[in-house]
């Protein structure tokens, strides 16, 4: 193995070093694009292959799905035989009207703000890479970390509906069931989470 002089290299790529995503072993790539990690056997890439296009595809999916997710009813409350379907926004308005600002704010954040933030943030990052914008790179990285972290919390709504559907089931008197938007909303959350996974933040710095 040849000794690599890394003193002149600014990035690992320049030093021809690859990092195993799974066991974090640092190893020389020796010019190859992909090698198998000698320690854990995982595939090592200098950059995730097709990261940009995959992320784009997933973000676009999320963007499209977020329309039915927000405009179709997500939950159906059946009270004395009269079904009453409500969208996410209906629920938030309901809670704010009832004075439950805390719950309203949580749902607003988890169901509307976070998915929007994620989609917009990812689009911003992707555009930045696409057009080689070199400014605010550090901030964009922080933005990506936040997106990655908060991704899982967007499932809150789905959990709430799933729980309510089981708990509030008194037959004719009252019952709650999931409405079509819940599927699309799950789609939005999953798409954004996968987008965050397929995205390789190092690409930001390649610009």
């Amino acid at each position: 193995m040849s000794q690599i002089d890394i003193s002149n290299c600014e990035t690992a790529r320049e030093a021809d070093l690859g990092l195993c995503h799974d066991c974090h072993k640092l190893m020389p790539m020796e010019g190859r694009h992909e090698v198998d990690c000698p320690r854990c056997g995982a595939r090592i890439h200098l950059r995730k292959p097709g990261s940009i296009s995959r992320t784009w595809a997933l973000v676009l999916t999320a963007l499209i799905l977020s329309f039915p997710a927000n405009f179709l009813p997500i939950m159906e409350v059946n009270f004395l035989g009269t079904p009453d379907a409500s969208t996410i926004m209906d629920g938030i308005i309901y809670f704010f009207k009832e004075g439950s600002y805390g719950i309203g704010a949580i749902i607003l954040t988890a169901s509307i703000l976070v998915p929007c933030f994620k989609i917009i943030g990812l689009i911003l990052i992707l555009l930045s890479i696409q057009f080689h914008w070199k400014s605010w790179l550090r901030h964009k990285t922080i933005l990506f970390r936040i997106i990655e972290f908060i991704g899982r919390w967007s499932m809150l709504d789905i959990f709430v509906i799933a729980l309510l559907q089981v708990l509030v089931n008194f037959g004719y008197i009252t019952s709650i069931s999931a409405a079509p938007a819940s599927t699309y909303f799950t789609g939005v959350v999953l798409s954004t989470m996968f987008a965050a996974i397929t995205f390789d933040s190092r690409l930001l710095w390649d610009a």
Binding site: G50, R54, A57, L58, L60, T61, I64, S191, T198
Partner: peptide, 10 residues
């Protein structure tokens, strides 16, 4: 990439 099926499906 086959991942583009997703947005098309959506």
């Amino acid at each position: 990439s086959p991942i583009w099926i997703l947005p098309i499906l959506a």
